[in-house]
Design a protein around this nucleic acid. Structure first.
Lengths: 345, 345
DNA sequence: TTGTACGCGTTATCAA
DNA sequence: TTGATAACGCGTACAA
């Protein structure tokens, strides 16, 4: 037999009003830090609030004021290292500004992403932050939010076409460039590239950086060494196997994430080649595994915590909570990247 | 000059009612899948909803029905591998049941945790899921939620004292036991232990498992080899340095997380000892790094995805959404653990 | 500086 | 099976 707990239904401003001998309007004023409240009155109200253990009902408040103080976040997968670090940062900063974070993951499904936009609209979040799926090339489902007055910030995976949304992205061009030109500087001539799918801006930009460095180094790109694929461990393994089975072998590989670079590194060790002597490898993301593997992996740091901070700063401007009167630029905010040199290249 | 976007203010059920020539009440019935709506009427409503691109205002709905369809989550840090995998699982399962996830991180601060309980109460979440801070020994701030009719589920780091909340925990006793008895089976006699702080149930239980295995193996516990500390890389390094600088040296170390085990492994390699020959090491959590490091790390798998699933299942029972009529047991639900044997032990 | 009265959009109750 | 009406708790225009 389950015991039925006695539920104290929550106090309202009416209770506080009664307890303090004031009107509900005054209570509301105190709660919202209105001017024109006598200090003594404020104190009386705060005492009553304390005594009754009153907590504002944000649902009712939101209905009236049209502000939920919740921010929606759509993300492909919470547990991807880079994403989880951005999210950690976003949540910490948002909380300081009095906003809550409502989190949705699309699992890289475009259909889920579309659904979640609707859900977040229904929830009347004050804004939406989104990192899109790998295959989102049409971003029009987000227009609905903006038309309804809900600002949208895209980060990491962002639209390449014109949009009214705010964009915050890593410097993927420079990341691709740094990785490649580092290899060239240390003497590589035959550089392979494991890229992500070009439907996604990230990999377009990294590829452009790769090409730029190759061109500057007067190196030819060998199409047999270029792979465009989802960046899984298995795919990378297949790719490197192919590359190393031909007559000509690359002397270096640039991979667009650390998972792929790790797959390469492990395969190469398995078949008895030495890294970096026989083959040099550069990854992307500075995943926690990259410092641990041996030889440790040279990779590109993306500063996820900084990205989270910039996202929230931009959001506060959009929501009019920023101290500064900054006008939003239409240009994307670009988060820097840095080559972390370790032993693999 | 920023251009002011034209904001279409959202349609309400009143608009839908007008467009379909029905009353708001009927629209609401359709939205909530009430019985007693004629099929033809339902169709008429759905058409109007479609035409107007209507989306229910969950804030208003929540005010009236006293259900926000949001679940609060309090977690020490989103980006810890284990936590982020549990969260991923929780979010995926919750979404299927039509609930949103509002996420807060305490950064292992008890004061933040207390604040967040209040915030989530104000938000009128339908339930709260919490993994507490390392130093939460008094859980009374959660009582407030339960008194207000908001059920609480603790997972991973749970209270050891009696509580009305639902508990879902890993089998930490067995994890500690498996790690230790494995070492004993392969011949270790002098086993050290790097434990977390005993304020936390996790480490109490793992320690008890350790002791049980030691006792069964007729092995003596050497107090100089027992460390109780926050499980950081640096702390573990200091600990192992101390252990290996004495006259007697352990032949194996059980660490309560993989970060500590990795710190041990790296230090031991630095000073020229061989793992597993000179020293055997077992970690805890099956962190992604543990398979990558060399030698690869023997560790304990905790099945975070399963834990997330069980959390949501328990929640649906508490919220009365479960198909089954299961009565909640008062016993904690225990998620199994498994020894992952690799090369370090 | 404070109080009165109304409305936000939805759902529940009751009556038809 | 459907409609009229009140209520959820709060914020704000307006009056005092």
């Amino acid at each position: 037999m389950a015991k039925i707990p006695k539920i104290e239904s929550a106090n309202t401003i009416l209770h506080v009003a009664e307890a303090s001998g004031l009107s509900p309007a005054t209570i509301s004023r105190v709660l919202n830090n209105h001017p024109y409240v006598k200090e003594a009155t404020r104190k009386r109200v705060l005492d009553a609030i304390e005594k009754l253990n009153y907590h504002r009902n944000n649902i009712a408040s939101g209905l009236r004021s049209n502000k939920s103080h919740a921010i929606g976040l759509i993300v492909p997968r919470i547990s991807m290292t880079f994403q989880s670090e951005v999210i950690t940062s976003i949540q910490n900063h948002l909380y300081k500004h009095g906003y809550n974070l409502m989190i949705c993951q699309s699992n890289d499904s475009l259909q889920m992403e579309r659904e979640m936009v609707k859900t977040l609209h229904s929830t009347r979040v004050d804004a939406v932050i989104a990192a899109c799926t790998l295959n989102t090339t049409d971003f029009s489902h987000f227009d609905f939010l903006m038309k309804s007055g809900i600002p949208v910030i895209f980060y990491d995976r962002v639209p390449t076409t014109k949009t009214a949304a705010t964009l915050i992205k890593g410097d993927d061009f420079r990341g691709g460039y740094l990785a490649t030109s580092h290899l060239i500087e240390i003497g590589c001539k035959n550089i392979a590239h494991i890229s992500g799918p070009l439907s996604c801006n990230l990999y377009q930009d990294r590829l452009a950086g790769f090409k730029k460095a190759m061109q500057q180094g007067n190196l030819k790109i060998n199409d047999k060494w270029m792979f465009y694929q989802e960046l899984t461990y298995e795919n990378a393994r297949v790719a490197v196997k192919k590359m190393l089975s031909g007559n000509e072998r690359p002397d270096a590989i640039v991979a667009d994430n650390d998972t792929s670079a790790i797959a390469v590194l492990e395969y190469v060790k398995e078949i008895g080649l030495k890294v970096p002597n026989d083959l040099k490898i550069v990854g992307y993301s500075n995943d926690s595994r990259s410092a641990i593997i041996s030889p440790s992996l040279t990779t590109i740091e993306q500063f996820p915590a900084l990205m989270g901070q910039k996202i929230v700063e931009a959001l506060m401007v959009l929501l009019g909570n920023s101290g500064t009167n900054t006008t939003m630029t239409q240009e994307p905010t670009v988060i820097p990247v840095q080559l972390i040199r370790r032993l693999s290249a």
